[in-house]
Design a protein around this nucleic acid. Sequence first.
DNA 1: TATTGTTATACTCTATAACTATA
DNA 2: TATAGTTATAGAGTATAACAATA
Lengths: 147, 147
Amino acid sequence: MARDDRDVGVLGSLVGYHLRRASGAFAVDFAGAMDGTGMRQVLFAILSIVESRPGINQGAVGQMLNIKRPNMVALINELIERRYLERIVAPEDKRAFALTLTSTGRAIIKKTAKRIQEHEARMLGRLTECERQKLIDLLARIYLPHD
Amino acid sequence: MARDDRDVGVLGSLVGYHLRRASGAFAVDFAGAMDGTGMRQVLFAILSIVESRPGINQGAVGQMLNIKRPNMVALINELIERRYLERIVAPEDKRAFALTLTSTGRAIIKKTAKRIQEHEARMLGRLTECERQKLIDLLARIYLPHD
DNA sequence: TATTGTTATACTCTATAACTATA
DNA sequence: TATAGTTATAGAGTATAACAATA
C-alpha cells in the first residue's frame, strides 16, 4: 500500500503513469549529467545509431528512433554544425545523405558515454543487475514489434 | 542479441533509452484511446489525484506529479472550463484553491478509465500479470524517493 | 508515382523570472 | 519574509501539409 502522502488514486495502478514518471526522472538526470556538453538524449541516440551503422541516411535513423522526417532535419543540421557528423550524397541514391561520424563525433561519444554510464548507475542504484536486465527486457517487449 | 535491422549500438544497453521508447509508445496509444474525449495523460493524472484527495490545492497536485506551479495554471483552468473540476478559495488559506471533482468530472473518469484499462491491456499483452506487477515495482523504485 | 529531404507551421510540454495577494 | 497562484516568455519535442529533386 502506498504511503498516504504519495497516494495518487487509480493512477498508481497504471503502468503508463509509472513509465512516464520514471522516463521523466531519467531525462532530468541525463540533462544534468550532460551539463556543459550540449548533449541531449535524442542527439546521443542519433550518434549511437550512426556509429553502429556508418553510411545510414537520416530517414532510416528517424525510423529506428520513431522521429518524423521533418523533425530529423534540424537535429541532423545541429550535429553537422557541431562537427559530430558528416553527410555526403549517397552514391547509390542521390536523394539521400549518407551519414558518418567525424573524429570529433567519436570523441564526444566516448566522453559522454562515461557520464551516461554513471547516470544510469545513479538512477538504477536500487536495482540489482538482474532486475536491470529484466527491466530492459520488459520495456523492449512493450514497444518493439513482435518477432 | 538484437536483430540486425534493429541494432541501435550502445543505446540498446541503456535503460533510459528503452524507458523513453516505451513511455512514448504508451503516450501515443493513450492519445488514440482517448480520441474524441479531449482527455490527455496529464489531465487524467490530475483528475485521479483530486478524486483521491478532494479539497487538495493545485500546488500540492503539481508537487505529486512533478509539474511546476506555473504550468499547473493552464491545466487546472482547462479542467475547470470543461466543468470537470470546481475550485473554491480554501477556507483555511485564502491564497489557495481547494479542488474537487464535479459530477461531470466523475463521469469522465468513469468513461475514460474503461478505455485506459483497455489501452493498458493492449500495451501489456505480451507481459504476464506477474511481470506487470514487477514492472511497476521496478519503475517506482527508480523515480520515487526511498523510504 | 513514390521516396528523400526540406520548409513552414502549430500545438504541447517544460522551465525561469517577476508579479499579486495572502500568510 | 515566505507561500499560492499568476503572467509572460522561451526552448524543446512533436505533428501535418506541401514542395523540390531524384528514383
